[in-house]
Design a protein around this nucleic acid. Structure first.
Length: 258
DNA sequence: TAGGCCATCTGGTCCT
DNA sequence: AGGACCAGATGGCCTA
């Protein structure tokens, strides 16, 4: 009886740790989807849904090579989300705000949401790259208890203080989340030939610090570098884009639309 | 108060 | 045998 009880207690402890790890991973995921707040976290299921939509939206942008209009972008992000979360995300992107209405005006380029209750990723909307000054205003948001995304600091840490040329087609690095159209990430360490040959896009994570991105190889930081739950070091990723698309996109479309 | 979300416990299954 | 993973049950907390 004692032995059985002890075994059960150990199993419970393991299960707790396992769930804590899972929750840590979810927290990291929350930080890389467009809407993040320390005080009002997205639920687990909504985080997963939003992440799926976000990946989908970004892959559509890459596929089409065009900037989507904000309304359809938000609609894509909010597909299948609950009403409160939809409101949250729309609020994050300030769909109904003056910022949005003037987005095409003189303020165009300033990322919406910097002063809202939620931090919005600079890449939350593709036209919303931060300049150095905007980066500073984003940092100010954190002094009001808001979490501003630390991509500026991240960039500085990686590449020095020089602001990237966000208009340059070369630059799409630290602000871009990983894209893997077929939904599988392959680790460099254990990438199997079977994986490689079937994938039109594959992501290779490298444990070694990368160099500044150029051409198709993009390097950007993991959540760890932004002081996430885990304290792992910076893990720049290398992303390799394979250029032959086609049937896989049809599969992907079917998958998401189902 | 009902419903949503969450953490935890628990037993079952599969794998090493 | 022991660990990982999973799903069901349960109770607590919060909000509309």
């Amino acid at each position: 009886m004692e032995r059985s009880k002890l075994r059960r207690q150990k199993a419970n402890a393991r299960e707790r740790n396992r769930m804590h790890d899972l929750n840590s991973a979810l927290d990291n995921l929350r930080k890389v989807v467009p809407c993040y707040s320390k005080t009002q976290k997205l639920s687990k299921i909504e985080t997963l849904r939003l992440a799926k939509n976000y990946i989908w939206a970004l892959s559509e942008i890459l596929r089409s090579g065009k900037r989507p209009d904000l309304v359809s972008y938000v609609q894509t992000l909010c597909k299948g989300l609950s009403q409160p979360t939809t409101n949250l995300v729309a609020g994050c992107l300030q769909l109904n705000s003056r910022n949005f209405l003037t987005e095409q005006g003189p303020e165009a380029g300033r990322y919406p949401g910097a002063n809202s209750s939620f931090a919005v990723h600079p890449y939350a909307y593709p036209c919303s790259r931060l300049s150095g000054a905007q980066c500073a205003s984003s940092t100010m948001a954190s002094s009001h208890g808001l979490r501003s995304h630390a991509y500026c600091a991240t960039y500085d840490a990686l590449y020095g203080n020089a602001s990237p040329d966000y208009n340059s087609s070369e630059y799409d690095g630290p602000l871009s989340p990983p894209l893997c159209v077929n939904g599988n990430f392959s680790l460099k360490a254990d990438a199997s030939p079977d994986h490689e040959k079937n994938y039109h896009y594959s992501m290779h994570y490298s444990a070694l610090p990368g160099s500044r991105p150029s051409g198709p190889n993009l390097v950007f930081g993991s959540s760890g570098m932004r002081g996430g739950v885990h304290s792992e070091n910076v893990l720049p990723y290398e992303m390799h884009l394979h250029h032959d698309r086609g049937p896989m996109y049809e599969e992907l479309n079917a998958f998401f639309h189902n």
